[in-house]
Amino acid sequence: MRIFSRRSRQFEQQLEMRWARLYRIAYSWCHDPQLASDLTQDTLTKALRKHHQLKKYNALDAWLFTILNNCWRDHYRRKKETVDIDEVNLSPAVLSDDENERMLIVNYVHKAIEKLSSDQRQVVTLIDLEEMTYNEVASILDIPIGTVMSRLSRARRQLKAHLQNQNNDTDSSSSNLWRVK
């Protein structure tokens, strides 16, 4: 039985409610507000067009993130000849002339995320931001659950290394704070 038998206002409202979550994940993948907005819009447009494919309401979230993943892949597939998805220089959108200390710290983490491969970035953000299960992530990204686990493991290991390095590079004067072993 179809949950949304027609393009109802109710369905549009359900999509609208998910804008912020989809945008947040899209942003965590590309670090470009406008691109993240475009990806989110593409996702919602496709969802509206393909609403008849959604069989269970409780699968809506996973379905939307699957579409978002496809949009993200399509975006770079179109640029495949010139750009490798893992070599994209993600723009540090939080940096500005009047950047304050708090934004700098957020930027530390964003920079560390940027250094991950796109595959790792997708896994870690879906799990840490959306609190998805490994099974859900495996389904959305169409990969085995073992791959989810190994990518997550490598991602967190690399994040740790990147953050430690950034802390070392940025403020050597505070190094005594974390040399108290």
């Binding site: 945008y23 947040r24 507000p33 983490v109 953000t125 994040l159």
Partner: peptide, 8 residues
């Protein structure tokens, strides 16, 4: 990671 994307 959770906190860094709290307000993108």
């Amino acid at each position: 990671v959770s906190l860094a994307y709290k307000n993108p």
